[in-house]
Amino acid sequence: MFVGTFEHSLDEKGRIVLPSTFRSHLADKGFLSQFDACLGLWTEEGFREVSGRLKDKIRDGLAPQEALRAFAANAHEVRPDAQGRITIPQRLRDFAGLSRDAVVIGAIDRIEIWDASRWSEVANQADGSLSQAVRALGL
């Protein structure tokens, strides 16, 4: 399970240090791909699961085939190095608007990597959404 918010910077080679609490889950390998205005990073098992769910949605006519193509074509296998860094390919950095300052968040079943300014905007909206959900669900 991935939780927490961590501020990090990308180095000149496009590498980012993952929080130490996340690294052990990705020791064998992980998969990085485009996600909702950010990058998603999954364990191998998590990537299989989300890919399967996407294929089910396509089969049921709820998502276009192009979504799976984009998700898979832009996926990148990663392994943290000895310093806990992963390299983010340029095309994925461009998609997520990553330049220097980034935020790495735990999103329960995945890790998300955000441009710091994008995350700031999203975090404010997310706080309001959580409040609404708590009230609606009676939590």
Rank of each mutant, 00 (worst) to 15 (best):
F22K: 02
F35P: 04
T87M: 12
G97P: 01
L54S: 02
A70T: 12
D81L: 03
L26R: 04
I88P: 08
A67H: 09
A27F: 09
A27S: 15
N74M: 10
S129W: 11
A102F: 00
S131R: 12
R15E: 12
G46Q: 05
L68S: 13
E44H: 08
A136I: 00
C38S: 09
R53D: 13
R59Q: 13
E7W: 06
I86Q: 00
T5R: 14
G106H: 05
L62N: 14
R85F: 04
G106M: 03
V17Y: 05
D60M: 06
A82R: 14
L98S: 06
W119F: 10
L10Q: 10
R85G: 07
S120G: 13
D56F: 04
R69W: 07
E121D: 15
T87Q: 12
S129G: 14
G52S: 13
F2L: 00
I113R: 11
R59D: 15
E12I: 04
S20W: 00
R69V: 11
V103N: 06
A82Q: 13
E112S: 01
T87Y: 01
E7C: 04
L26V: 04
T21S: 15
A96T: 00
D81Q: 02
S120F: 02
D94P: 02
Q83L: 12
D127N: 12
G97C: 01
N124K: 14
K57Y: 07
R48N: 15
R79Q: 14
G30I: 02
I113G: 04
Q90S: 12
R59A: 14
A116H: 05
F71E: 07
A116F: 02
I111D: 02
E49K: 11
E7H: 13
H76P: 02
S24P: 03
G97N: 10
R15F: 03
G84A: 05
K57D: 14
E45A: 12
A107M: 07
D94I: 08
A96D: 03
V104D: 06
A37D: 15
P19E: 08
I111W: 02
E45T: 11
P80S: 00
G106Q: 09
E112T: 02
L98I: 01
L18F: 01
W119D: 06
E7I: 06
G52M: 00
I88E: 04
E45G: 08
L137E: 09
I58G: 06
R59C: 09
L139Q: 14
L10D: 05
L26T: 03
